[in-house]
Design a protein around this nucleic acid. Structure first.
Length: 645
RNA sequence: GCCGGAAUAGCUCAGUAGGUAGAGCAGUUGCUUCGUAAGCAAUUGGUCGGAGGUUCGAGUCCUCUUUCCGGCACCA
């Protein structure tokens, strides 16, 4: 007899050995039927695994997060079962769980089409409806190799080679199909009913573009129908706030075949862009930055000195002039900034020197990487380079991190993922230097008590970096702000300052930082974040004056002039149209305030105010409306329909 | 860059088995002067992304190419 402790603290004596499923059955037949897996002494296991000693046991059902993950994992196995029936020559690779779903990488002779995806999904549904049992067996390594050799599963054999220490593997039998997995998995396919295959794409073996491309089948799966439908609905809603769609609808920007990856900003979009720029300029000035401007096109020699020419040559736009000089469009602002620093003698009294530049950079990004405003070939950085002493470095890092997080708050981003990327293989500078630089970043985060995710080997070739990551409408993460510390470029460009004892050869440390990162990308993220309802301070048109009929033009003209003089972005809609149409169209354009002016308002010398959310705020004096606008602009934050007034 | 998909009017999209293009909205013109999400009528828009090919005939089939979309890889 062994003793089993359940989550509620109750204990059961059972004969040994037993299984999670047996325990569930003892508690009740309903629970037994719902059992997907178990957690024994903190470790997930299959419902069929034997328990041979006193244990703490938790039963996992579809109601648990782990249960849903197991469902997803088993769904990926089911892809295998279906694919091998439809395409016997296919070789299965790996099928892991991801956010909201799963995928399976498969090696095939010909790539899957979208029709194939439907065929696979249909076969999976058929297999589910037979409600077959999934059988788990622990099998000795040599037997596993034998099994997969017979079945020609070359990739499974390669995966086994990757785990030389494992002597026994879990094999899951899905009728005639066999998969190798750590598990746990569902005991029966009836748990897998609420799934959908979502897309098929190529993916490199081991994630390396030098390797062959496999077929990746993606899917999503949920505990119940409601969960699945809610997910599909969420995806649909997210697609509606895609910045590329809203950019067209709200007349903010467009792209053209002639300039792939470069934005044509329309007046309204450019208003947003400039507003962001003004905001950042103000914040930086307040934080002790100076602003400079450096050339867009500079000689190849500069890029050789910086190291960019050797590391990024193929991603740079370059040009050859009549005199055979090769110039490159700057892909980064740092070499220009360093040249700026090198101009004239610098004293320790000048440090820290915080030199900002709204530099437009060009990068020849791979064609497949381009994505609306998020990934472009021509973008504007709110860049700055901070030159300081080694002693000042840590405090400067802290100040930058504090500033960027405070700025994000103004846009409603409270949860920002911070990534720390350390030295890459392809790098310049000594290991001692890298130790110091990485130390400065980790120390400053630790001192601020901030969590971060470590990405070993992902740093820039000249220094480690912090990245501040924001999430877009459909859950994709985009790097915005970045902070990099660098002792290498100062070395390469041989920049120095004079210390307090008159030594002229002191080497400053250089911090590269961008807070929005790319203004284009940040604008894109904002459009999605706000779903097109830009807060009043960022709205291209903050209010629109709509007349009821001819006769109010003069009053509106006066009002327009008054508001424009106060610096508000206000327009008039004097078209010979009914007020209903004007309200509709300006609501669709997401103008925060629509001011209705008829003969009544002219007579009372006021305006009737309506919001883009359909709230009628009724008549108010011109002064009242001005203070309403001012209040919103000062608040900066996004205001939803409940508190627009 | 790699795999798959797409490209038809300013926008959203139809286009049936290859038989020289169609809707709604927008635009334009006229009428209407109107009170909080679409007033009425008339009407202009397209070498069907580009280049080749098959065919008596191609938006439709084939090849190449450009751009976009979804992933993968990349992201100084």
């Amino acid at each position: 007899m062994i003793s089993i402790t359940l989550p509620d603290g109750s204990k059961r004596e059972v004969s040994s050995p037993t299984t999670v499923h047996d325990i569930a059955k003892m508690i009740g037949p309903g629970l037994a039927k719902a059992t997907i897996a178990g957690e024994v002494n903190g470790t997930l296991c299959d419902a069929s695994d034997l328990i041979e000693q006193d244990s703490y046991v938790r039963i996992i059902t579809a109601k648990d997060n782990e249960g849903v993950e197991i469902i997803r994992h088993s769904c990926s196995h089911l892809i295998g079962h279906a694919v091998k029936q439809l395409f016997p020559e296919a070789k299965m690779v790996i099928g892991p769980v991801i956010d909201d779903g799963f995928y399976y990488d498969i090696s095939t002779t010909t790539p899957f089409s979208s029709e194939d995806l439907l065929k696979i999904e249909d076969r999976m549904k058929d297999l589910i409806s037979t409600e077959y049992d999934v059988i788990k067996k622990m099998v000795r390594r040599d037997k596993v190799i034998e099994e997969f050799t017979v079945r020609g599963e070359d990739y499974k054999l390669r995966l086994i080679e990757d785990m030389p220490e494992e002597q026994e593997m879990g094999l899951y039998y899905h009728e005639e199909y066999l998969d190798m997995c750590r598990g746990p998995h569902v005991p029966n396919t009836r748990f897998l009913k609420n799934f959908k295959l979502t897309k098929v794409s190529g993916a490199y073996w081991r994630g390396d573009s030098k390797n062959e491309m496999l077929q990746r089948v993606y899917g999503t799966a949920w505990a119940d129908k409601k969960g699945l439908q809610a997910y599909l609905k969420r995806v649909e809603e997210s697609e509606k706030r895609d910045h590329r769609k809203l950019g067209r609808k709200l007349d903010l920007f467009h792209f053209s075949d002639e300039a792939p990856g470069s934005v044509f900003w329309h007046p309204k979009g450019w208003t947003l862009f400039l507003e962001l720029l003004d905001y950042m300029r103000g914040r930086q000035r307040a934080a002790g930055y100076v602003e400079v401007n450096t050339p867009d096109v500079m000689d190849r020699g500069l890029w050789e000195t910086s190291g960019h020419w050797f590391n990024y040559r193929e991603h740079m736009f370059s040009t050859q002039t009549e005199d055979d000089r090769i110039f490159a469009l700057k892909p980064m602002n740092c070499p220009g900034s360093v040249s700026m620093f090198a101009q004239g003698l610098k004293s320790y009294r000048d440090l820290p020197l915080r030199m900002a530049e709204f530099g437009k950079v060009h990068r020849y990004e791979p064609s497949g990487a381009l994505h609306g405003l998020m990934r472009v070939r021509h973008f504007t950085q709110d860049d700055a380079h901070i030159y300081c002493t080694e002693e000042q470095m840590e405090q400067e890092c802290i100040d930058v991190v504090a500033l960027v997080l405070d700025i994000y708050k103004d846009f409603g981003f409270e949860d920002v993922v911070i990534k720390l990327s350390t030295r890459p293989e392809k790098r310049i500078g000594s290991d001692e230097t890298w130790d110091k630089l990485e130390g400065a970043l980790t120390n400053s985060l630790d001192m601020m008590g901030l969590e971060y995710v470590l990405f070993p080997g992902e740093g820039a070739f000249y220094g480690p970096k912090l990245e501040f990551v924001l999430r877009d409408a459909i859950g994709r993460d985009w790097q915005c702000g970045t902070l990099q510390v660098d002792m290498n470029l100062p070395e390469r460009f041989d920049i120095t300052y004079v210390d307090e004892r008159g030594n002229r050869d002191k080497r400053p440390v250089m911090l590269h930082r961008a807070l929005f990162g790319s203004l284009e990308r940040f604008a894109g993220i904002l459009i999605e974040n706000y779903s097109g309802d830009l807060p009043v301070w960022l709205s291209p048109v903050q209010a629109i004056l709509c007349n009821i009929s001819a006769g109010q033009e003069e009053y509106i003209a006066g009002l327009l002039e008054m508001l424009a003089k106060k610096g508000f972005r206000v327009e008039a809609d004097l078209r010979n149209e009914k007020i209903g149409l004007k309200i509709r169209e300006n609501t669709i354009q997401r103008v925060p305030f629509m001011l209705v002016v008829g003969s009544k308002e002219v007579e009372d010398d006021n305006v009737s105010v309506r919001t883009r959310y359909g709230d009628d705020l009724g008549p108010m004096t011109k002064a009242e409306f001005v203070s309403l606008l001012e209040k919103h602009i000062k608040a900066k934050r996004w205001i939803n329909s409940n508190d627009e007034s």
